[in-house]
């Protein structure tokens, strides 16, 4: 991404859907395919709900605001972000597309250039999310069906609170409601054809992707390489005390883990949204 280029790019997804993998591949591609340095491999693609950035961009301490007050200011924060050339142009997003109680778009479309929307089979998400949060499979499945607050404990953490609606609603918010140019990619596409998928992403967001840089970026950011780097150096985004951030990433890996009834109930609950983004194949 060229410095000073106008408009922000969002990498949007429900957690544990491949968002970080996409960011790592893009970060490497932007460096001509260079390997990334763990434990903090993607400092230049930060989360949009960063508390520190909010405080600096707004000039007020978010920890003195209620979660709702901060939420209502996020559109203004993002406009200020877009107007600040020194800030990164590509952002990680776990929120759904939506509006604040004031009726404003949480992500003002006029400052969003493109959205890369990453989706993954909710049954695989369920397993990975449970490991990430150190909760049971059943609790994770409940989060997918009921939605959850992220980063909203009794005291602030490094992210502002984010409301994640149920998985289906989250997916459809980006595919149906977001008026910006959205490219939806599937985790399985990244797995089956990382080079082709990364090229599509780069094209969608207007990033140069010379063939040799693509080759190197894909080789530098295989899931296996990242899991190995995390084992050696750690990873700043790991939350669990028991599990690595980068799991096996096996498509359909839920089969050995979820009970048949639980797997079926997730598929039935989210069938329409899964079909919408081609996750039934």
């Amino acid at each position: 991404m060229m410095a000073g280029e106008s408009g922000l790019v969002l990498i949007a997804s429900f957690p544990k859907s491949g968002n970080t993998w996409v960011r790592l591949a893009l970060a490497s591609l932007m460096r001509g395919g260079a390997p990334l340095s763990f434990p903090a491999p993607v400092p230049d693609i930060p989360i949009c709900a960063s508390r520190l950035r909010f405080d600096e961009l707004m000039g007020v301490e978010s920890a003195d605001l209620t979660p709702m007050e901060a939420y209502r200011l996020r559109p203004a924060m993002l406009r200020q972000w877009a107007a600040t050339p020194s800030e990164p142009r590509i952002l990680k997003v776990h929120d759904a597309w939506g509006r604040t109680p004031d009726g404003e778009s949480l992500f003002p479309p006029e400052v969003i250039r493109a959205v890369v929307h990453v989706v993954r089979d909710p049954r695989d998400v369920c397993v990975s999310f449970a490991a990430h949060l150190d909760v049971s499979i059943e609790t994770s499945a409940r989060y997918l069906s009921q939605g959850l607050w992220m980063a909203r404990g009794s005291r602030p953490v490094i992210q502002l609170p984010q409301w994640l609606p149920p998985w289906s609603e989250h997916v459809l918010s980006w595919t149906e409601d977001c008026p910006c140019p959205v490219l939806t990619i599937r985790f399985a596409d990244m797995r089956a054809d990382p080079r082709g998928t990364l090229a599509r992403i780069a094209h969608h967001i207007g990033l140069d992707s010379p063939a040799d840089a693509l080759d190197r970026a894909v080789a530098a950011t295989t899931l296996e390489a990242m899991a190995a780097a995390e084992r050696s150096f750690g990873f700043v985004e790991r939350q669990s005390k028991n599990n690595q951030f980068f799991g096996s990433g096996r498509v359909g890996g839920w089969r050995g883990v979820l009970s048949q009834p639980l797997g079926d109930s997730i598929r039935e609950a989210h069938a329409a949204a899964m079909a919408r983004v081609g996750l039934n194949e």
Binding site: P39, E230, R231, S232, G234, F235, N243
Partner: peptide, 8 residues
């Protein structure tokens, strides 16, 4: 400090 490998 920066995070280290799991369990260290």
């Amino acid at each position: 400090p920066p995070p280290g490998p799991l369990g260290t």
